[in-house]
């Protein structure tokens, strides 16, 4: 059964500061449930900009976006926050954990925000996610006590906490050495294969892209290959 987790229809975006520059033009593509897709393209071609739009953080664009079949048009801040919380797990290049909380709490926060389960259930789930990523030993440590690769794994655990529709990553391995980025890649691969998790990962790394199920190639704000 076909199920589109993301569908983008003719998405365009321009920046007007200081002069109008069209960064994305007529981006149309879709991702099926369980697909592991990568986006590649030269630096500055608009990959991040597209990802921010797809993740509902940026609502200032033309075109239509459906997430899980739901139209994102005219959604207010609170509704979009809810969608992000429930359906999207985001992994950034610079891990972005909260240093005020320990790793376990960092993973728990989106789960507590969702409010679907009681705190102890969320805590249990968070611990399970850390286990999947092989970093449960660091649960009670704080982010600043971890290495870059470990932090990124905690961030992936956090992205997983609400069993999202899709995980999006913006060069999640861009800041890691070869060993660690292989590690993260293998985790993504395992999530895709074992848990049928949908993933959309922006990357620079051609080896990385080659190993995903499908690679979308962008150039100057346009998709030139759907892979």
């Amino acid at each position: 059964m076909e199920h589109k987790v993301i569908e983008s229809i003719g998405i365009s975006k321009s920046f007007h500061d200081p002069i109008t520059v069209k960064v994305l033009s007529e981006i149309s593509f879709s991702i099926q449930a369980g697909e592991f897709v990568s986006i590649v393209g030269k630096s500055g071609c608009g990959k991040s900009t597209l990802l921010y739009i797809l993740s509902t953080m940026d609502s200032n664009y033309e075109g239509k976006l459906y997430l899980d079949g739901m139209n994102m048009e005219n959604k207010v801040d609170r509704e979009r926050a809810r969608v992000r919380n429930e359906k999207i797990g985001f992994v950034f290049q610079f891990h972005y954990l909260l240093n005020e909380f320990n790793n376990l709490q960092n993973v728990m926060l989106p789960g507590l925000k969702l409010g679907k389960f009681a705190a102890d259930k969320v805590e249990h789930d968070a611990y399970e996610k850390l286990k999947i990523l092989g970093i449960e030993d660091a649960a009670l440590k704080y982010p600043n006590q971890l290495s870059g690769g470990q932090k990124q794994r905690v961030a992936i655990a956090r992205a997983l906490i609400n069993e999202p529709l899709i995980i999006m990553g913006d060069e999640p391995t861009g800041n890691l050495d070869k060993k660690n980025s292989d590690n993260v890649f293998n985790i993504f691969k395992e999530l895709a294969e074992e848990y049928h998790q949908s993933l959309l990962i922006v990357t620079h790394d051609m080896d990385f892209a080659a190993n995903t199920q499908r690679t979308i190639t962008m150039e100057d704000g346009k998709i030139i290959s759907h892979g």
């Binding site: 953080m57 801040d77 609170r78 926050a81 992000r84 919380n85 972005y96 909260l98 925000k113």
Partner: peptide, 16 residues
């Protein structure tokens, strides 16, 4: 700033 951004990215609204 970073913490606020991350809270928002992970689903906390402006109101939160």
């Amino acid at each position: 700033m970073d913490s606020i951004a991350i809270l928002k990215a992970t689903g906390f609204s402006g109101r939160d």
